[in-house]
Design a protein around this nucleic acid. Structure first.
Length: 693
DNA sequence: GGGACTATAC
């Protein structure tokens, strides 16, 4: 049943027509149809007689983001007699994201001697929050109190939203606590405020309170709760939310589908997310984007690219967010061919490239070993669009390829041009120094943070520990961690643990590992690293203990995968993969290469096999590392003059590193390897990392 | 005549 507005009275002839057109306007889904209806209403003079239809038209134009037309409709009415139309126009601005226009319009309202009412304030407050104008918002708050609308539920809920939106969550809570009457919307507004402030636990506590007071979660509340649970990454609670949505038939609302999907994605439950996606009755662009994000966040970049292909053939209109996610998927995958393809798609489809997207594309090129294109893009940025993140992306790009000096030059140039470095700039610079062994320069940059008033975060300390650690300055690294007192997190201790692995310091490694197992008991990588350190020192007993420990905790070592692109096709190789007809000749090729390299002086580094087995078996395992298989495959299939690109999901082992160096000399091939931390460019028997990785 | 909500990241 449709509820009609107060302006309608039964038995009045105009109201039958109003009724009729109201239905049509509500259901019209294209701008063309709306324009046609509008012109009919104008020529017949109906619109002049109906404030209700005028308002509908204004709102509908604003839904299509045609605010100018909406305003034109407003201007051509007798609005001075109708507070309703003024409020409608304000609402049109506020609800379509034109918050500064809304505020401008509000001051016009005041100049026209309009008295704001309970319909006016919520939209003004919403626009204050959207423009982050807290001073203005507080002024409106006092106006609310003065005009006596301080206890209107709608206005109060908007006040809660305004304070929360401006980041002053405590004031939002004060308004909320003072409310004499609350409905689900107010509760949801307050719960959302906590969720947005990344205080998911508090949000869920408040939800409990809401339910104790007898309120039932509606679909909007469910959306918020799902994202709070997603924030916690709590799969068990996730299933409870999902169950609630199913029992109450809420999965028929697309936003609920989307938020439950995103929740499972953040809990690492890809299969559940997949199921929600496939079973959805209806999908919008956010549904698709959420599923893409799910794959990317869970390390399934190539699945994301497949889904993107499927999305292109669906009837949904993809947007800028879509390509941003796909670009990041491609960054993970490191596929040069896909990178070019996506960039081309963006240009062909005239998708607006804003600063965020451009930086993401530059980063993608850098991560696909195409630093030249990234640099070219940077140089083409118009001066007025150059921002800190563009500089950051370039610095990070140079850093990951081991060009520390270049990174520092860019950093200096950026400062010369009066750009204010931020926390990300320093992360990029410090990590660049770390990868290139520029200890003194790194120390200088670290000290410089204070000059630019950038707070030192754990991630900056982690870069420093990494830098000292790789350079063999383990004591300096450890002292720095001690300086942090209790603020050291897993990143910092992880960097120390890696340094201990490189320099074979088992004692310090045990200290780092103790902290890590305490801080992140479920993080597989740290167990593997520590067990490798024990293996290096042939302490098989401890290796066994750790393995058992992992097994008891249900942790499994992630499979090492090496990807190589040949003729626009990606091939993956796993360490110790079973031989089949496809891989047999690849294995044979590895054997031949190893024999030839041995004649050039190659001595296999058996310490890279972390199993307590006979040396003969170790040779086999070592030769069948995924990156060696990928390299052999590349030697067989990539044209002689072209570089071989390999992408590995873990850190490259030192035996493979020596093999790659030798192959680059003996076979005269350029090889580019991306591992989990950085790039290695092999040429003429040398690596760009100077064996420092 | 109205309000609360989901996908983005160097």
């Amino acid at each position: 049943m449709i509820r009609w507005g107060l302006t309608l009275r039964k038995n009045n002839p105009i109201n039958k027509i109003e009724h009729h057109y109201d239905k049509i306007i509500q259901s019209c889904n294209t701008l063309q149809i709306l324009t046609q209806i509008h012109s009919i209403l104008t020529t017949t003079g109906i619109i002049k007689q109906s404030v209700h239809l005028t308002a509908r038209i204004i709102i509908k134009y604003s839904n299509f983001l045609h605010l100018q037309t909406a305003r034109h409709v407003f201007d051509s009415t007798d609005h001075d007699t109708s507070s309703f139309l003024w409020n409608t126009m304000l609402r049109a601005y506020a609800n379509s994201g034109f918050s500064s226009d809304a505020l401008e319009f509000y001051s016009l309202m005041r100049k026209a001697d309009f008295t704001p009412n309970n319909y006016t304030f919520p939209f003004v407050l919403k626009s204050c929050a959207a423009s982050l104008l807290i001073t203005h918002g507080k002024l409106v708050h006092s106006e609310v109190l003065r005009t006596g609308f301080g206890s209107d539920v709608y206005v109060e809920a908007a006040l809660v939203d305004m304070y929360a939106g401006c980041g002053i969550i405590d004031d939002a809570r004060k308004v909320f606590d003072k409310m004499s009457k609350r409905d689900v919307v107010c509760w949801t507004a307050m719960i959302t405020a906590y969720e947005q402030a990344e205080r998911a636990e508090t949000a869920l506590c408040l939800l409990d309170q809401m339910q104790q007071e007898g309120f039932v979660m509606d679909w909007v509340a469910t959306v918020t709760v799902a994202s709070a649970v997603g924030q916690l990454g709590d799969a068990k609670r996730g299933r409870a939310v999902h169950g609630y949505a199913v029992r109450n038939g809420l999965l028929y609302e697309v936003p609920v589908v989307n938020s439950v999907l995103a929740m499972y994605a953040k809990c690492g439950e890809v299969e559940f997310a997949d199921m929600i996606f496939e079973r959805a009755e209806e999908r919008n662009v956010i549904t698709w984007n959420s599923m893409l994000t799910c794959y990317v966040q869970n390390g399934l970049a190539s699945e994301a690219l497949d889904l993107f292909e499927r999305m292109k053939t669906s009837d949904v209109n993809l947007n800028q967010v879509t390509v941003l996610i796909v670009v990041s998927a491609c960054s993970y995958l490191g596929s040069r061919q896909q990178a070019a393809k996506i960039h081309d798609f963006i240009v062909q489809n005239k998708i607006d490239i804003n600063q965020t997207l451009r930086n993401a594309i530059m980063d993608m090129y850098a991560k696909c070993a195409d630093l030249d294109t990234a640099l070219k893009m940077f140089k083409e940025i118009p001066v007025n669009q150059l921002d800190v993140s563009a500089w950051n992306t370039l610095i990070a790009g140079y850093g990951m390829h081991g060009y520390g000096k270049h990174a520092l030059n860019v950093f200096n140039q950026m400062k010369d041009e009066n750009f204010q470095p931020n926390h990300i700039t320093f992360t990029s610079v410090l990590s660049a120094c770390s990868h290139s062994g520029l200890v003194n320069e790194g120390k200088k940059c670290f000290a410089e943070m204070e000059i630019f008033s950038v707070a030192k975060e754990p991630k900056h300390y982690a870069c420093m520990v990494d830098m000292y650690g790789r350079a063999g300055l383990l004591n300096e690294a450890y002292e720095l961690i001690k300086d942090m007192k209790s603020h050291a997190n897993d990143e910092v201790w992880g960097a120390l643990l890696l340094a201990c692995k490189i320099h074979g310091n088992t004692n310090l490694a045990e200290v780092a590992a103790d902290n890590l197992f305490h801080l992140e008991p479920q993080h597989t990588g740290y167990y593997v690293l520590m067990s490798n350190i024990y293996a290096d020192s042939r302490n098989w007993q401890e290796v066994g203990n750790l393995r058992r420990d992992m097994k008891n905790k249900g942790l499994r070592k992630p499979a090492a995968v090496s990807l190589i692109e040949v003729n626009n096709e990606l091939y993956g190789f796993r360490t110790g993969e079973h031989m089949d007809s496809f891989t047999r000749n690849v294995y044979q090729k590895v054997e031949r290469v190893v024999v030839e390299l041995k004649m050039e002086g190659y001595v296999p580094d058996l310490s890279c096999v972390f199993h307590d087995v006979e040396d003969e078996d170790k040779h086999g395992m070592l030769n069948y590392h995924g990156e060696k298989l990928a390299l052999a495959f590349g030697l067989m299939n990539v044209d002689a003059g072209l570089p071989i690109f390999i992408n590995k999901n873990l850190r490259v082992c030192s035996d493979c590193h020596s093999v790659f160096k030798l192959v680059s000399r003996v076979y005269g091939r350029k090889i580019v390897v991306r591992d989990v931390n950085r790039f290695h460019h092999f040429e003429d028997g040398l690596c760009s990392c100077n064996d420092y990785w």
